[in-house]
Write a protein that binds this DNA or RNA. Structure first.
Lengths: 294, 294
DNA sequence: TTCAATCTATCAGATAATCAGATGGTATCC
DNA sequence: GGATACCATCTGATTATCTGATAGATTGAA
Protein backbone atom coordinates (compact mmCIF):
# COMPACT_ATOMS: atom_id res chain seq x y z
CA UNK A 1 0.00 0.00 0.00
CA UNK A 2 2.74 2.43 0.90
CA UNK A 3 0.23 4.79 2.44
CA UNK A 4 -0.11 5.08 6.19
CA UNK A 5 -3.15 6.16 8.15
CA UNK A 6 -0.88 7.64 10.79
CA UNK A 7 0.65 9.85 8.14
CA UNK A 8 -2.79 10.95 7.02
CA UNK A 9 -3.81 11.65 10.58
CA UNK A 10 -0.71 13.76 11.14
CA UNK A 11 -1.42 15.63 7.92
CA UNK A 12 -5.06 16.33 8.76
CA UNK A 13 -4.30 17.34 12.34
CA UNK A 14 -1.50 19.62 11.25
CA UNK A 15 -3.79 21.26 8.72
CA UNK A 16 -6.48 21.69 11.32
CA UNK A 17 -4.30 23.07 14.09
CA UNK A 18 -2.12 25.11 11.76
CA UNK A 19 1.16 23.87 13.20
CA UNK A 20 3.06 20.65 13.55
CA UNK A 21 3.73 21.30 17.22
CA UNK A 22 0.08 21.82 18.03
CA UNK A 23 -0.80 18.72 16.04
CA UNK A 24 1.76 16.77 18.05
CA UNK A 25 0.23 18.00 21.30
CA UNK A 26 -3.25 17.01 20.17
CA UNK A 27 -2.07 13.60 19.03
CA UNK A 28 -0.01 13.06 22.15
CA UNK A 29 3.19 12.61 20.21
CA UNK A 30 6.50 14.39 19.89
CA UNK A 31 6.78 17.28 17.48
CA UNK A 32 9.45 15.49 15.52
CA UNK A 33 7.09 12.60 14.93
CA UNK A 34 4.49 14.79 13.26
CA UNK A 35 7.12 16.72 11.34
CA UNK A 36 8.69 13.63 9.88
CA UNK A 37 5.35 11.96 9.28
CA UNK A 38 4.16 14.85 7.13
CA UNK A 39 7.51 15.09 5.40
CA UNK A 40 7.44 11.39 4.60
CA UNK A 41 3.88 11.65 3.32
CA UNK A 42 4.97 14.42 1.01
CA UNK A 43 7.83 12.28 -0.25
CA UNK A 44 5.53 9.29 -0.76
CA UNK A 45 2.97 11.33 -2.67
CA UNK A 46 5.46 13.47 -4.52
CA UNK A 47 3.35 16.47 -3.59
CA UNK A 48 4.22 19.40 -1.35
CA UNK A 49 1.41 19.70 1.15
CA UNK A 50 2.70 22.64 3.16
CA UNK A 51 4.66 25.76 2.35
CA UNK A 52 7.31 26.07 5.04
CA UNK A 53 8.69 29.55 4.44
CA UNK A 54 7.21 31.22 7.51
CA UNK A 55 7.03 30.22 11.10
CA UNK A 56 3.84 28.24 10.60
CA UNK A 57 3.39 25.82 7.75
CA UNK A 58 0.85 27.04 5.18
CA UNK A 59 -1.14 24.46 3.30
CA UNK A 60 -0.74 24.49 -0.46
CA UNK A 61 -3.52 24.36 -3.04
CA UNK A 62 -2.79 20.72 -3.71
CA UNK A 63 -2.71 20.12 0.03
CA UNK A 64 -6.14 21.60 0.42
CA UNK A 65 -7.66 19.29 -2.15
CA UNK A 66 -5.85 16.27 -0.76
CA UNK A 67 -6.89 17.30 2.74
CA UNK A 68 -10.52 16.76 1.87
CA UNK A 69 -9.73 13.30 0.53
CA UNK A 70 -7.67 12.47 3.58
CA UNK A 71 -10.49 13.53 5.87
CA UNK A 72 -12.86 11.33 3.94
CA UNK A 73 -10.55 8.36 4.34
CA UNK A 74 -10.18 8.87 8.07
CA UNK A 75 -13.92 9.30 8.45
CA UNK A 76 -14.49 5.98 6.75
CA UNK A 77 -11.91 4.35 8.95
CA UNK A 78 -13.63 5.72 11.99
CA UNK A 79 -16.92 4.33 10.71
CA UNK A 80 -15.25 1.01 10.07
CA UNK A 81 -13.97 0.86 13.63
CA UNK A 82 -17.33 1.87 15.06
CA UNK A 83 -18.96 -0.97 13.22
CA UNK A 84 -16.28 -3.41 14.31
CA UNK A 85 -16.72 -2.29 17.89
CA UNK A 86 -20.44 -2.87 17.65
CA UNK A 87 -19.80 -6.38 16.36
CA UNK A 88 -17.31 -7.06 19.15
CA UNK A 89 -20.05 -6.08 21.59
CA UNK A 90 -22.15 -8.92 20.23
CA UNK A 91 -24.36 -6.73 18.12
CA UNK A 92 -25.43 -8.60 15.01
CA UNK A 93 -23.86 -7.70 11.69
CA UNK A 94 -27.13 -8.40 9.91
CA UNK A 95 -30.70 -9.20 10.74
CA UNK A 96 -32.99 -10.81 8.19
CA UNK A 97 -36.68 -10.60 8.90
CA UNK A 98 -39.25 -12.47 6.86
CA UNK A 99 -42.61 -10.74 6.91
CA UNK A 100 -45.97 -11.89 5.66
CA UNK A 101 -47.90 -9.35 3.64
CA UNK A 102 -50.64 -9.64 6.18
CA UNK A 103 -48.64 -7.68 8.75
CA UNK A 104 -49.56 -3.98 8.71
CA UNK A 105 -46.71 -1.78 7.49
CA UNK A 106 -47.28 0.88 10.08
CA UNK A 107 -46.52 -1.35 13.04
CA UNK A 108 -43.44 -2.82 11.37
CA UNK A 109 -42.06 0.49 10.16
CA UNK A 110 -42.35 1.95 13.61
CA UNK A 111 -40.17 -0.83 15.01
CA UNK A 112 -37.68 -0.59 12.16
CA UNK A 113 -37.37 3.14 12.65
CA UNK A 114 -36.31 2.71 16.24
CA UNK A 115 -34.13 -0.18 15.23
CA UNK A 116 -32.16 2.02 12.84
CA UNK A 117 -31.54 4.52 15.58
CA UNK A 118 -30.61 1.94 18.18
CA UNK A 119 -28.39 -0.23 16.00
CA UNK A 120 -26.97 1.92 13.22
CA UNK A 121 -24.21 -0.57 12.52
CA UNK A 122 -26.48 -3.51 11.80
CA UNK A 123 -27.63 -4.25 8.30
CA UNK A 124 -31.26 -5.06 7.82
CA UNK A 125 -32.86 -7.35 5.29
CA UNK A 126 -36.61 -7.53 4.97
CA UNK A 127 -38.00 -10.49 3.03
CA UNK A 128 -41.54 -10.12 1.96
CA UNK A 129 -44.08 -12.66 0.83
CA UNK A 130 -46.99 -14.83 1.83
CA UNK A 131 -47.74 -17.87 3.93
CA UNK A 132 -45.55 -20.90 3.50
CA UNK A 133 -42.93 -19.07 1.46
CA UNK A 134 -42.17 -16.88 4.43
CA UNK A 135 -42.09 -19.81 6.83
CA UNK A 136 -39.69 -21.62 4.54
CA UNK A 137 -37.28 -18.70 4.67
CA UNK A 138 -36.98 -19.11 8.43
CA UNK A 139 -36.77 -22.89 8.27
CA UNK A 140 -34.02 -22.79 5.68
CA UNK A 141 -32.03 -20.18 7.59
CA UNK A 142 -32.51 -17.55 4.95
CA UNK A 143 -34.11 -15.37 7.61
CA UNK A 144 -33.32 -14.93 11.29
CA UNK A 145 -36.95 -14.48 12.28
CA UNK A 146 -40.35 -14.25 10.73
CA UNK A 147 -43.71 -12.62 11.24
CA UNK A 148 -46.07 -15.04 9.62
CA UNK A 149 -49.13 -17.21 9.54
CA UNK A 150 -47.87 -20.65 10.55
CA UNK A 151 -48.87 -23.41 8.17
CA UNK A 152 -47.30 -26.28 10.02
CA UNK A 153 -44.42 -26.73 12.40
CA UNK A 154 -42.86 -30.02 11.41
CA UNK A 155 -40.20 -30.03 14.10
CA UNK A 156 -39.20 -28.14 17.19
CA UNK A 157 -36.25 -26.36 15.61
CA UNK A 158 -38.20 -23.13 15.56
CA UNK A 159 -39.70 -21.33 18.52
CA UNK A 160 -42.82 -19.29 18.08
CA UNK A 161 -45.05 -16.86 19.84
CA UNK A 162 -48.51 -15.58 19.09
CA UNK A 163 -48.28 -11.88 18.31
CA UNK A 164 -51.65 -10.78 17.06
CA UNK A 165 -54.87 -11.74 15.41
CA UNK A 166 -55.22 -9.97 12.13
CA UNK A 167 -58.84 -9.10 11.45
CA UNK A 168 -60.12 -10.13 8.05
CA UNK A 169 -62.75 -8.39 6.11
CA UNK A 170 -64.93 -9.57 3.22
CA UNK A 171 -64.87 -7.07 0.40
CA UNK A 172 -66.10 -6.57 -3.14
CA UNK A 173 -66.13 -3.74 -5.63
CA UNK A 174 -69.09 -1.34 -5.55
CA UNK A 175 -70.48 -2.68 -8.84
CA UNK A 176 -70.32 -6.33 -7.71
CA UNK A 177 -73.66 -8.11 -7.12
CA UNK A 178 -72.67 -8.98 -3.55
CA UNK A 179 -72.05 -5.32 -2.79
CA UNK A 180 -75.70 -4.56 -3.52
CA UNK A 181 -76.99 -6.92 -0.81
CA UNK A 182 -77.82 -5.51 2.60
CA UNK A 183 -77.18 -8.87 4.20
CA UNK A 184 -74.93 -11.47 2.62
CA UNK A 185 -75.46 -15.12 3.43
CA UNK A 186 -73.05 -17.98 2.87
CA UNK A 187 -75.30 -19.12 0.07
CA UNK A 188 -74.80 -15.79 -1.67
CA UNK A 189 -71.04 -16.19 -1.36
CA UNK A 190 -71.12 -19.61 -2.92
CA UNK A 191 -72.47 -18.28 -6.16
CA UNK A 192 -69.57 -15.94 -6.84
CA UNK A 193 -65.87 -16.16 -7.47
CA UNK A 194 -63.68 -15.91 -4.37
CA UNK A 195 -60.01 -15.08 -4.35
CA UNK A 196 -57.95 -17.05 -1.86
CA UNK A 197 -54.46 -16.26 -0.69
CA UNK A 198 -52.18 -19.25 -1.15
CA UNK A 199 -48.50 -19.86 -1.51
CA UNK A 200 -46.55 -21.63 -4.21
CA UNK A 201 -47.00 -25.11 -2.82
CA UNK A 202 -50.74 -24.60 -2.59
CA UNK A 203 -50.78 -24.03 1.15
CA UNK A 204 -53.61 -21.93 2.46
CA UNK A 205 -54.45 -20.23 5.70
CA UNK A 206 -55.47 -22.85 8.29
CA UNK A 207 -59.22 -22.87 8.53
CA UNK A 208 -59.24 -20.73 5.44
CA UNK A 209 -62.37 -18.79 4.86
CA UNK A 210 -63.60 -20.44 1.71
CA UNK A 211 -67.18 -20.18 0.62
CA UNK A 212 -67.12 -19.15 -2.96
CA UNK A 213 -67.25 -21.25 -6.05
CA UNK A 214 -64.68 -21.02 -8.78
CA UNK A 215 -62.06 -19.94 -6.27
CA UNK A 216 -58.84 -18.45 -7.59
CA UNK A 217 -55.62 -19.03 -5.67
CA UNK A 218 -53.40 -15.99 -5.72
CA UNK A 219 -50.01 -15.60 -4.13
CA UNK A 220 -50.31 -11.97 -3.16
CA UNK A 221 -52.87 -10.10 -1.09
CA UNK A 222 -52.09 -7.04 -3.15
CA UNK A 223 -52.88 -8.78 -6.41
CA UNK A 224 -56.11 -10.06 -4.88
CA UNK A 225 -57.04 -6.57 -3.86
CA UNK A 226 -56.47 -5.30 -7.38
CA UNK A 227 -58.62 -8.08 -8.82
CA UNK A 228 -61.40 -7.31 -6.37
CA UNK A 229 -61.13 -3.63 -7.22
CA UNK A 230 -61.72 -4.57 -10.84
CA UNK A 231 -64.96 -6.23 -9.82
CA UNK A 232 -63.81 -9.72 -10.74
CA UNK A 233 -64.86 -11.33 -7.49
CA UNK A 234 -64.86 -11.02 -3.73
CA UNK A 235 -62.27 -11.91 -1.11
CA UNK A 236 -61.50 -11.95 2.57
CA UNK A 237 -58.59 -9.59 2.99
CA UNK A 238 -56.63 -8.23 5.95
CA UNK A 239 -58.52 -5.21 7.18
CA UNK A 240 -55.58 -2.82 7.06
CA UNK A 241 -55.13 -3.55 3.35
CA UNK A 242 -58.64 -2.44 2.46
CA UNK A 243 -59.46 0.23 5.01
CA UNK A 244 -58.47 3.11 2.82
CA UNK A 245 -60.18 1.69 -0.22
CA UNK A 246 -63.40 1.22 1.73
CA UNK A 247 -63.20 4.76 3.08
CA UNK A 248 -62.64 6.06 -0.46
CA UNK A 249 -65.62 4.09 -1.74
CA UNK A 250 -63.56 1.90 -4.08
CA UNK A 251 -64.44 -1.20 -2.10
CA UNK A 252 -67.49 -2.23 -0.14
CA UNK A 253 -67.37 -4.22 3.05
CA UNK A 254 -69.77 -7.14 2.77
CA UNK A 255 -72.11 -7.71 5.70
CA UNK A 256 -71.58 -11.41 6.07
CA UNK A 257 -73.03 -13.22 9.05
CA UNK A 258 -70.73 -16.06 9.95
CA UNK A 259 -71.27 -18.36 12.84
CA UNK A 260 -68.25 -20.60 12.77
CA UNK A 261 -65.44 -18.47 11.33
CA UNK A 262 -64.00 -15.67 13.41
CA UNK A 263 -62.80 -13.35 10.63
CA UNK A 264 -59.36 -13.51 12.18
CA UNK A 265 -56.03 -15.05 11.34
CA UNK A 266 -53.26 -15.50 13.90
CA UNK A 267 -49.83 -14.01 13.24
CA UNK A 268 -46.86 -15.61 14.95
CA UNK A 269 -43.35 -14.46 15.54
CA UNK A 270 -41.06 -17.42 14.85
CA UNK A 271 -37.31 -17.90 15.06
CA UNK A 272 -34.89 -20.80 15.05
CA UNK A 273 -34.53 -22.09 18.62
CA UNK A 274 -30.90 -23.04 18.27
CA UNK A 275 -29.51 -19.99 16.57
CA UNK A 276 -27.79 -17.61 18.97
CA UNK A 277 -28.89 -14.02 18.43
CA UNK A 278 -26.88 -10.94 19.26
CA UNK A 279 -28.16 -7.86 21.01
CA UNK A 280 -29.75 -6.43 17.90
CA UNK A 281 -31.53 -9.67 17.14
CA UNK A 282 -32.86 -10.00 20.67
CA UNK A 283 -34.00 -6.41 20.61
CA UNK A 284 -35.94 -6.91 17.38
CA UNK A 285 -37.45 -10.11 18.70
CA UNK A 286 -38.70 -8.37 21.80
CA UNK A 287 -40.05 -5.37 19.96
CA UNK A 288 -41.79 -7.45 17.33
CA UNK A 289 -43.37 -9.55 20.06
CA UNK A 290 -44.97 -6.39 21.41
CA UNK A 291 -46.62 -5.54 18.11
CA UNK A 292 -50.32 -4.97 18.52
CA UNK A 293 -50.64 -7.98 20.81
CA UNK A 294 -53.51 -7.02 23.00
CA UNK B 1 -5.30 5.46 14.79
CA UNK B 2 -4.35 1.88 15.54
CA UNK B 3 -5.67 0.75 12.19
CA UNK B 4 -3.31 -0.17 9.38
CA UNK B 5 -4.00 -0.06 5.66
CA UNK B 6 -1.68 -3.01 5.17
CA UNK B 7 -3.87 -5.02 7.51
CA UNK B 8 -6.94 -4.02 5.58
CA UNK B 9 -5.28 -4.90 2.31
CA UNK B 10 -4.33 -8.31 3.65
CA UNK B 11 -7.89 -8.82 4.84
CA UNK B 12 -9.48 -7.83 1.55
CA UNK B 13 -7.03 -9.82 -0.53
CA UNK B 14 -7.48 -12.88 1.64
CA UNK B 15 -11.25 -12.57 1.32
CA UNK B 16 -10.99 -12.20 -2.44
CA UNK B 17 -8.58 -15.04 -3.05
CA UNK B 18 -10.11 -17.30 -0.46
CA UNK B 19 -6.82 -18.20 1.17
CA UNK B 20 -4.03 -16.52 3.05
CA UNK B 21 -1.39 -18.19 0.94
CA UNK B 22 -2.93 -17.00 -2.30
CA UNK B 23 -3.29 -13.54 -0.86
CA UNK B 24 0.39 -13.60 0.09
CA UNK B 25 1.30 -14.60 -3.45
CA UNK B 26 -0.77 -11.81 -4.93
CA UNK B 27 0.68 -9.26 -2.53
CA UNK B 28 4.20 -10.51 -3.00
CA UNK B 29 4.66 -11.30 0.66
CA UNK B 30 5.25 -14.34 2.78
CA UNK B 31 2.28 -16.39 3.89
CA UNK B 32 3.11 -15.72 7.50
CA UNK B 33 2.88 -11.99 6.91
CA UNK B 34 -0.69 -12.23 5.67
CA UNK B 35 -1.64 -14.69 8.35
CA UNK B 36 -0.38 -12.52 11.17
CA UNK B 37 -1.70 -9.34 9.59
CA UNK B 38 -5.23 -10.72 9.49
CA UNK B 39 -4.87 -12.17 12.98
CA UNK B 40 -3.68 -8.82 14.34
CA UNK B 41 -6.51 -7.01 12.59
CA UNK B 42 -8.94 -9.37 14.26
CA UNK B 43 -7.35 -8.66 17.63
CA UNK B 44 -7.42 -4.90 17.04
CA UNK B 45 -11.07 -4.95 16.02
CA UNK B 46 -12.15 -7.56 18.51
CA UNK B 47 -14.03 -9.29 15.73
CA UNK B 48 -13.40 -12.66 14.16
CA UNK B 49 -13.22 -12.11 10.42
CA UNK B 50 -12.55 -15.67 9.30
CA UNK B 51 -13.62 -19.09 10.47
CA UNK B 52 -10.51 -21.24 10.45
CA UNK B 53 -11.91 -24.71 11.00
CA UNK B 54 -11.37 -26.06 7.52
CA UNK B 55 -8.45 -25.98 5.18
CA UNK B 56 -9.44 -22.62 3.74
CA UNK B 57 -10.50 -19.74 5.94
CA UNK B 58 -14.19 -18.93 5.60
CA UNK B 59 -15.29 -15.35 6.05
CA UNK B 60 -17.77 -14.75 8.86
CA UNK B 61 -20.97 -12.71 8.68
CA UNK B 62 -19.28 -9.84 10.48
CA UNK B 63 -16.30 -10.22 8.18
CA UNK B 64 -18.50 -9.88 5.15
CA UNK B 65 -19.99 -6.62 6.33
CA UNK B 66 -16.61 -5.25 7.36
CA UNK B 67 -15.15 -6.39 4.06
CA UNK B 68 -17.37 -3.96 2.21
CA UNK B 69 -16.24 -1.14 4.45
CA UNK B 70 -12.60 -2.13 4.08
CA UNK B 71 -12.95 -2.17 0.30
CA UNK B 72 -14.46 1.30 0.42
CA UNK B 73 -11.54 2.56 2.48
CA UNK B 74 -8.96 1.10 0.12
CA UNK B 75 -10.80 2.47 -2.88
CA UNK B 76 -10.69 5.92 -1.37
CA UNK B 77 -7.01 5.54 -0.64
CA UNK B 78 -6.40 4.53 -4.20
CA UNK B 79 -8.30 7.57 -5.38
CA UNK B 80 -6.28 9.72 -3.01
CA UNK B 81 -3.04 8.40 -4.44
CA UNK B 82 -4.23 8.84 -8.01
CA UNK B 83 -4.98 12.45 -7.32
CA UNK B 84 -1.65 12.95 -5.58
CA UNK B 85 0.11 11.41 -8.55
CA UNK B 86 -1.71 13.75 -10.88
CA UNK B 87 -0.58 16.70 -8.80
CA UNK B 88 2.97 15.45 -8.76
CA UNK B 89 2.82 15.38 -12.56
CA UNK B 90 2.10 19.10 -12.52
CA UNK B 91 -1.59 18.77 -13.15
CA UNK B 92 -3.44 21.56 -11.39
CA UNK B 93 -5.37 20.78 -8.23
CA UNK B 94 -8.01 23.33 -9.14
CA UNK B 95 -8.94 25.53 -12.06
CA UNK B 96 -11.17 28.53 -11.54
CA UNK B 97 -12.73 29.98 -14.64
CA UNK B 98 -14.61 33.27 -14.61
CA UNK B 99 -17.20 33.39 -17.38
CA UNK B 100 -19.31 36.25 -18.59
CA UNK B 101 -22.97 35.47 -19.08
CA UNK B 102 -22.55 36.48 -22.67
CA UNK B 103 -20.64 33.29 -23.48
CA UNK B 104 -22.94 30.60 -24.89
CA UNK B 105 -23.32 27.64 -22.57
CA UNK B 106 -23.12 25.08 -25.30
CA UNK B 107 -19.58 25.96 -26.34
CA UNK B 108 -18.37 26.10 -22.74
CA UNK B 109 -20.07 22.90 -21.67
CA UNK B 110 -18.53 21.03 -24.54
CA UNK B 111 -15.05 22.03 -23.38
CA UNK B 112 -15.81 21.27 -19.74
CA UNK B 113 -17.11 17.85 -20.65
CA UNK B 114 -13.84 16.90 -22.30
CA UNK B 115 -11.97 18.54 -19.44
CA UNK B 116 -13.65 16.28 -16.91
CA UNK B 117 -12.64 13.23 -18.89
CA UNK B 118 -9.08 14.39 -19.47
CA UNK B 119 -8.36 15.67 -15.96
CA UNK B 120 -10.61 13.77 -13.55
CA UNK B 121 -8.43 14.72 -10.59
CA UNK B 122 -8.69 18.46 -11.05
CA UNK B 123 -11.39 20.42 -9.30
CA UNK B 124 -13.29 22.93 -11.32
CA UNK B 125 -14.77 26.19 -10.20
CA UNK B 126 -16.92 28.22 -12.57
CA UNK B 127 -17.54 31.81 -11.55
CA UNK B 128 -20.36 33.45 -13.37
CA UNK B 129 -21.27 37.08 -13.81
CA UNK B 130 -21.06 40.09 -16.07
CA UNK B 131 -18.53 42.56 -17.35
CA UNK B 132 -16.19 44.18 -14.88
CA UNK B 133 -17.09 41.80 -12.06
CA UNK B 134 -15.67 38.94 -14.04
CA UNK B 135 -12.57 40.83 -14.99
CA UNK B 136 -11.98 41.74 -11.37
CA UNK B 137 -12.03 38.07 -10.42
CA UNK B 138 -9.07 37.43 -12.68
CA UNK B 139 -7.23 40.56 -11.62
CA UNK B 140 -7.61 39.74 -7.96
CA UNK B 141 -6.52 36.15 -8.43
CA UNK B 142 -9.87 34.74 -7.52
CA UNK B 143 -9.94 33.07 -10.92
CA UNK B 144 -7.18 31.51 -13.00
CA UNK B 145 -8.64 32.66 -16.28
CA UNK B 146 -11.65 34.44 -17.64
CA UNK B 147 -13.87 34.55 -20.69
CA UNK B 148 -15.09 38.09 -20.68
CA UNK B 149 -15.72 41.43 -22.30
CA UNK B 150 -12.67 43.50 -21.38
CA UNK B 151 -13.50 46.86 -19.83
CA UNK B 152 -9.99 48.14 -19.39
CA UNK B 153 -6.58 46.60 -18.93
CA UNK B 154 -4.82 48.86 -16.47
CA UNK B 155 -1.54 47.01 -16.47
CA UNK B 156 0.20 44.20 -18.27
CA UNK B 157 -0.22 41.65 -15.51
CA UNK B 158 -2.84 39.83 -17.55
CA UNK B 159 -2.45 38.39 -21.00
CA UNK B 160 -5.43 38.27 -23.31
CA UNK B 161 -6.54 36.89 -26.60
CA UNK B 162 -9.54 37.62 -28.76
CA UNK B 163 -11.74 34.57 -28.88
CA UNK B 164 -14.96 35.51 -30.59
CA UNK B 165 -17.36 38.24 -31.47
CA UNK B 166 -20.71 37.66 -29.81
CA UNK B 167 -23.54 38.81 -32.04
CA UNK B 168 -26.06 41.03 -30.33
CA UNK B 169 -29.65 41.29 -31.20
CA UNK B 170 -32.23 44.00 -30.46
CA UNK B 171 -35.38 42.49 -29.01
CA UNK B 172 -38.72 43.46 -27.52
CA UNK B 173 -41.84 41.65 -26.44
CA UNK B 174 -44.55 41.04 -29.06
CA UNK B 175 -46.88 43.60 -27.49
CA UNK B 176 -44.25 46.33 -27.37
CA UNK B 177 -44.74 49.34 -29.72
CA UNK B 178 -41.31 48.80 -31.30
CA UNK B 179 -42.24 45.25 -32.18
CA UNK B 180 -45.08 46.55 -34.36
CA UNK B 181 -42.75 48.55 -36.62
CA UNK B 182 -41.53 47.00 -39.85
CA UNK B 183 -38.42 49.15 -39.78
CA UNK B 184 -37.03 50.63 -36.54
CA UNK B 185 -34.98 53.81 -36.70
CA UNK B 186 -32.69 55.16 -34.01
CA UNK B 187 -35.27 57.86 -33.42
CA UNK B 188 -37.83 55.17 -32.59
CA UNK B 189 -35.43 53.61 -30.12
CA UNK B 190 -34.87 56.90 -28.36
CA UNK B 191 -38.49 57.14 -27.35
CA UNK B 192 -38.52 53.91 -25.37
CA UNK B 193 -36.88 52.42 -22.33
CA UNK B 194 -33.70 50.45 -23.01
CA UNK B 195 -32.14 47.93 -20.65
CA UNK B 196 -28.36 48.05 -20.53
CA UNK B 197 -26.07 45.43 -19.11
CA UNK B 198 -23.73 46.98 -16.55
CA UNK B 199 -21.71 45.78 -13.64
CA UNK B 200 -21.66 46.93 -10.07
CA UNK B 201 -19.25 49.79 -10.57
CA UNK B 202 -21.37 51.12 -13.42
CA UNK B 203 -19.06 49.84 -16.17
CA UNK B 204 -20.70 49.15 -19.47
CA UNK B 205 -19.74 47.41 -22.64
CA UNK B 206 -17.19 49.51 -24.55
CA UNK B 207 -19.01 51.33 -27.34
CA UNK B 208 -22.20 50.21 -25.67
CA UNK B 209 -25.25 50.17 -27.84
CA UNK B 210 -27.26 52.88 -26.14
CA UNK B 211 -30.05 54.66 -27.92
CA UNK B 212 -33.02 54.55 -25.64
CA UNK B 213 -34.17 57.11 -23.16
CA UNK B 214 -34.77 56.27 -19.53
CA UNK B 215 -32.18 53.49 -19.69
CA UNK B 216 -32.09 50.96 -16.90
CA UNK B 217 -28.78 49.45 -15.86
CA UNK B 218 -29.11 45.80 -14.95
CA UNK B 219 -26.38 43.48 -13.80
CA UNK B 220 -27.65 40.33 -15.45
CA UNK B 221 -28.53 39.54 -19.05
CA UNK B 222 -31.03 37.02 -17.75
CA UNK B 223 -32.84 39.62 -15.67
CA UNK B 224 -32.89 41.93 -18.67
CA UNK B 225 -34.40 39.20 -20.79
CA UNK B 226 -37.14 38.65 -18.22
CA UNK B 227 -37.93 42.36 -18.12
CA UNK B 228 -38.08 42.52 -21.90
CA UNK B 229 -40.32 39.44 -21.93
CA UNK B 230 -42.69 41.35 -19.63
CA UNK B 231 -42.88 44.13 -22.23
CA UNK B 232 -41.21 46.71 -20.03
CA UNK B 233 -38.73 47.89 -22.65
CA UNK B 234 -36.30 46.76 -25.32
CA UNK B 235 -32.67 45.66 -25.14
CA UNK B 236 -29.70 44.49 -27.13
CA UNK B 237 -29.00 40.97 -25.91
CA UNK B 238 -26.58 38.22 -26.90
CA UNK B 239 -28.22 36.31 -29.72
CA UNK B 240 -27.90 32.90 -28.11
CA UNK B 241 -29.85 34.14 -25.09
CA UNK B 242 -32.90 35.09 -27.11
CA UNK B 243 -32.88 32.66 -30.03
CA UNK B 244 -35.28 30.23 -28.43
CA UNK B 245 -37.61 32.95 -27.21
CA UNK B 246 -37.73 34.47 -30.69
CA UNK B 247 -38.43 31.10 -32.26
CA UNK B 248 -41.20 30.52 -29.73
CA UNK B 249 -42.72 33.92 -30.45
CA UNK B 250 -42.16 35.26 -26.95
CA UNK B 251 -39.76 37.89 -28.25
CA UNK B 252 -39.53 39.82 -31.50
CA UNK B 253 -36.28 40.71 -33.17
CA UNK B 254 -36.31 44.42 -34.02
CA UNK B 255 -35.28 45.39 -37.53
CA UNK B 256 -32.92 48.18 -36.62
CA UNK B 257 -30.77 49.73 -39.30
CA UNK B 258 -27.53 50.81 -37.69
CA UNK B 259 -24.67 52.37 -39.55
CA UNK B 260 -22.02 52.86 -36.96
CA UNK B 261 -22.55 50.03 -34.44
CA UNK B 262 -21.69 46.49 -35.48
CA UNK B 263 -24.14 44.49 -33.34
CA UNK B 264 -21.17 42.61 -31.98
CA UNK B 265 -19.22 42.49 -28.77
CA UNK B 266 -15.73 40.98 -28.51
CA UNK B 267 -15.07 38.21 -26.01
CA UNK B 268 -11.53 37.77 -24.78
CA UNK B 269 -9.80 34.97 -22.98
CA UNK B 270 -7.65 36.53 -20.27
CA UNK B 271 -5.25 35.09 -17.71
CA UNK B 272 -2.55 36.37 -15.38
CA UNK B 273 0.73 36.52 -17.28
CA UNK B 274 2.89 35.70 -14.32
CA UNK B 275 0.97 32.81 -12.84
CA UNK B 276 2.41 29.43 -13.79
CA UNK B 277 -0.28 27.05 -14.96
CA UNK B 278 -0.10 23.30 -14.78
CA UNK B 279 -1.05 20.90 -17.53
CA UNK B 280 -4.77 21.15 -16.84
CA UNK B 281 -4.68 24.93 -16.88
CA UNK B 282 -2.77 25.06 -20.14
CA UNK B 283 -5.15 22.57 -21.67
CA UNK B 284 -8.21 24.62 -20.71
CA UNK B 285 -6.54 27.78 -21.98
CA UNK B 286 -5.88 26.20 -25.34
CA UNK B 287 -9.33 24.71 -25.67
CA UNK B 288 -11.10 27.89 -24.65
CA UNK B 289 -9.02 29.84 -27.15
CA UNK B 290 -10.47 27.62 -29.88
CA UNK B 291 -14.06 28.43 -28.95
CA UNK B 292 -16.01 29.64 -31.94
CA UNK B 293 -13.13 31.86 -33.07
CA UNK B 294 -13.61 32.03 -36.78
C1' DT C 1 17.36 46.52 18.05
C1' DT C 2 17.31 42.94 21.22
C1' DC C 3 15.25 39.28 23.72
C1' DA C 4 12.12 35.64 24.80
C1' DA C 5 8.96 32.47 23.06
C1' DT C 6 7.66 29.34 19.69
C1' DC C 7 8.06 27.30 15.65
C1' DT C 8 10.50 23.67 12.30
C1' DA C 9 14.02 20.36 10.65
C1' DT C 10 17.20 17.05 11.75
C1' DC C 11 19.96 13.81 14.25
C1' DA C 12 20.91 9.75 17.45
C1' DG C 13 19.48 6.11 20.12
C1' DA C 14 15.70 3.32 21.79
C1' DT C 15 11.53 1.01 20.79
C1' DA C 16 8.07 -1.23 18.22
C1' DA C 17 6.27 -3.22 14.05
C1' DT C 18 6.91 -6.02 10.20
C1' DC C 19 9.14 -9.28 7.40
C1' DA C 20 10.96 -13.78 5.46
C1' DG C 21 11.95 -18.33 6.33
C1' DA C 22 11.52 -22.60 8.86
C1' DT C 23 8.65 -25.83 11.35
C1' DG C 24 4.80 -28.63 12.68
C1' DG C 25 -0.08 -29.62 12.60
C1' DT C 26 -4.16 -30.39 9.70
C1' DA C 27 -7.50 -30.66 5.91
C1' DT C 28 -8.32 -32.37 1.17
C1' DC C 29 -7.86 -35.18 -2.74
C1' DC C 30 -6.13 -39.06 -5.23
C1' DG D 1 -2.03 -43.95 3.10
C1' DG D 2 0.60 -40.56 0.81
C1' DA D 3 1.12 -36.23 -1.57
C1' DT D 4 -0.18 -31.66 -1.61
C1' DA D 5 -1.52 -27.35 0.00
C1' DC D 6 -3.08 -24.93 3.65
C1' DC D 7 -2.62 -22.46 8.29
C1' DA D 8 -0.42 -20.93 12.87
C1' DT D 9 3.57 -19.99 15.22
C1' DC D 10 8.29 -19.16 16.29
C1' DT D 11 12.88 -16.77 15.48
C1' DG D 12 16.05 -13.54 14.06
C1' DA D 13 16.70 -9.70 10.92
C1' DT D 14 15.04 -5.66 8.96
C1' DT D 15 12.49 -1.63 8.81
C1' DA D 16 9.65 2.00 10.59
C1' DT D 17 8.55 4.93 14.15
C1' DC D 18 9.08 7.32 18.44
C1' DT D 19 11.24 10.30 21.93
C1' DG D 20 14.33 13.70 23.33
C1' DA D 21 17.90 16.92 22.20
C1' DT D 22 19.78 20.45 19.28
C1' DA D 23 20.20 24.27 16.06
C1' DG D 24 18.26 27.67 12.99
C1' DA D 25 14.32 30.78 11.92
C1' DT D 26 10.33 33.62 12.70
C1' DT D 27 7.39 36.49 15.41
C1' DG D 28 5.98 39.88 18.71
C1' DA D 29 7.04 42.52 22.62
C1' DA D 30 10.24 45.24 25.38
Amino acid sequence: MGLSLDHLEAFVTAAETGSFSAAARRLGKAQSAVSTAVANLEIDLGVQLFERSGKYPAITGEGEVLLRDARAILARCSYFQDRAYAFSENIDARIRIAVDEIVPHRALVEVLERFGETFPETELEILYGTLKDIQTLVEEDRADMGLLIPIDFPDKTVSSRLVAYMPYCPVAAPGHPLAELVEVTTEDLETHREFIIASRGGERIPDAIIFGSRTWMIESNYVIRDLVLKGMGYAFLPRHLVEEEIAAGHLVRLSVTLEQTPHQVPVYLVWPSAKPLGKAGKWVLEELAKIECG
